[in-house]
Simulated assay, not measured.
Amino acid sequence: MNVEPPAVAEKSAPRGRVSSSDLRAIGAFVALAVVSAWLVALPLWFGDGLADPWFPLVSVAMMTTPAIAALVVVRFVERRQRPAWALGLWPLRPVRRVLGFAALGIVTSIALVLAALPVGALLGVYPADFANFSAFRQVLGEQTGGAELPVPVGALIAVQLAALPLGAFVNLLPALGEELGWRGWLLPKLMPLGPLAAVLISGVIWGAWHAPLILLGYNYPDAPGLLGVAAMVGMCVLVGAVFGWLRLRSGSVWPAALAHGAFNAAGGTYLLFAQAGENVDTTQATILGWSGWIVPLVLVVVLVATGQFAAAKHPSGPPER
Rank of each mutant, 00 (worst) to 15 (best):
P6S: 14
E10T: 08
S12M: 06
A13H: 14
P14G: 10
R15D: 15
I26Y: 04
V34F: 08
S36F: 03
A37Y: 12
L39C: 09
L39A: 13
P53T: 07
L57M: 09
A61H: 13
M62T: 10
A67Y: 03
A69H: 07
A70R: 00
V73T: 14
F76P: 07
E78R: 09
R96P: 08
R97I: 07
A102Y: 04
I106R: 06
S109C: 10
A111Q: 12
A116N: 08
P118W: 04
A121G: 08
L123I: 02
F130K: 05
N132P: 04
T144Q: 10
E148Q: 12
L149C: 10
P152S: 14
V153E: 05
L156V: 02
Q160T: 05
L164Q: 11
P165R: 12
F169C: 10
L176M: 13
L176I: 11
S202A: 12
V204W: 05
V204M: 07
I205G: 00
P212V: 03
L215F: 08
Y220P: 04
D222W: 03
C236Q: 05
C236R: 04
G240H: 01
F243W: 14
F243M: 15
S250N: 10
S252D: 09
N264K: 01
F273I: 00
A274G: 14
A276L: 07
A285Q: 12
L288C: 12
W293N: 01
W293K: 00
P296A: 01
V298M: 11
V301T: 12
V302K: 02
A310R: 06
K313S: 08
S316W: 01
P318T: 01
P318M: 09
P319Q: 07
E320L: 15
